[in-house]
Design a protein around this nucleic acid. Structure first.
Lengths: 248, 248
DNA sequence: GAGTGGTCTAGACCACGAG
DNA sequence: TCGTGGTCTAGACCACTCA
């Protein structure tokens, strides 16, 4: 494979994982063991393991060991239309826990929601688990004076769709929704929460929903591990008169 | 800052870059020099520098040195509507080079374009530079039997919009466009081309355009460094009922 | 050839998790 | 307490760039 020592070792381990030599959930040999198996020093072994971790193939747990990840669930964030299929497509065996708290908008959130700083918000934090390990983090914010929604409970969607449904149910209709997508590294807290390495790319999605009056009624911050998530957007030209500005 | 040695060092350097101690384009002290300045060993120094590289703050050039990046241009990929403002918002002083070649669809491209394998394609490869360094890579594919477009030349948009315009100009209208966005690590070739580290997250965009008949007329693979790119998508509530509120 | 970063070693000690 | 990974050291040698 690679010409470097650590790339070669990473390739070997990668192949053993792919071909079933190590299965999902298996613990890899201890790093001290791998140094003997490959005849390399520990930093070299660890460089190789870091590659696999950043690719999402293994999970490294301090004091416990290195484990092959369950590569099952690919999350798809779809925002085709407002009323259509915006559900996240996920596998079964999902556990979503929701925590709700009231907070005041910081500088960043205030800018996102276009409210004065310190505006009272309700935060709905969704953390999803699959096979006892987390794989998606969604924080949904609704200004207190827009709605105080009923508790969505532990529910189906890991991406906070429940809140959008309740908004609709409360007669608050979304006319416009903008999503800003970035690829970045997780901060320390996100990495801890999602059990990923600080070098694992994450897909960050900032979603802002506004009503017909242009008022922001909901904003969300989604953090998804890059190796198990994708976002899909579709644009149609078929609508009768969507283009207010003339075609070119 | 961080409790670890390398995180602390990274924080110090980060601050010196932010506050102008080191300016864009400046060369950092040699790593051997930094070991003396911080009283740390070289691997520790290099761990810190790796963090800065992956954050997009510095560029590491083998045999030359470590340099502060020009943090200027933030690329915005916008796909709000088909006829609206899908232009990439970029700064001035951009240089876009285009290379065109005919190729046969591999397995992956064939699946993307929904054509049989080995279908003849034309590839338009856009590589954009800013301050002599690359910052965006776009590969646009059009089946040969759809169109053989005039050379777009070195043109404005770094994301291949020129091809879309020429398609429109050739009477080939796009009815539907799907974008798939992922956060991932670059492969070796991409990292080399974009002058980023292999640990720097990239924003990957797969865009597929179809005509009214459902035929794929264009597909694109965009690779953008995560630290200097974002993708923005907007959905309007184009409900079946005619929308009376036109102004916003 | 001089100076730079890229790779690798063979240890050491610390922090964490579980019995 | 023990085995695990996390951090760090003080070197070595190689590969690349440029004068």
């Amino acid at each position: 494979m690679g010409s470097n020592r650590y790339e070669f070792i990473a390739g070997e381990l990668r192949q053993q994982i792919a071909t079933g030599g190590f299965s999902a959930g298996d613990q890899l040999p201890a790093e001290s063991e791998l140094t003997k198996l490959f005849g390399a020093s520990r930093p070299t072994i660890r460089d190789a393991l870091s590659m696999l971790e950043n690719e999402g193939l293994i999970m490294r747990l301090h004091g416990r060991g290195n484990f092959v990840r369950h590569t099952s669930g690919q999350i798809t964030y779809a925002a085709d239309s407002l009323s259509g299929d915006r559900r996240a497509a996920v596998n079964a065996a999902i556990e979503v826990s929701v925590s709700i708290r009231e907070t005041a908008a910081g500088k960043e959130l205030a800018s996102l929601l276009r409210t004065p700083p310190a505006t009272a918000l309700i935060e709905y934090a969704f953390l999803s688990h699959h096979m006892t390990f987390p794989y998606a983090l969604a924080r949904v914010y609704v200004p207190c004076d827009v709605a105080r929604l009923d508790i969505p409970r532990a529910s189906g969607s890991p991406l906070g769709d429940e809140v959008l449904d309740r908004l609709e149910g409360a007669g608050i209709h979304v006319a416009n929704r903008a999503s800003r997508v970035t690829a970045r590294l997780p901060d320390a807290e996100e990495a801890w929460t999602l059990r990923i390495g600080t070098g694992t790319p994450v897909l960050g999605i900032e979603r802002v929903s506004t009503n017909v009056a242009g008022r922001v009624v909901e904003a969300s911050l989604l953090t998804l591990p890059g190796h198990s998530a994708e976002a899909v957007f579709t644009a149609h030209a078929t609508t009768p008169a969507p283009d207010l500005e003339g075609a070119r």
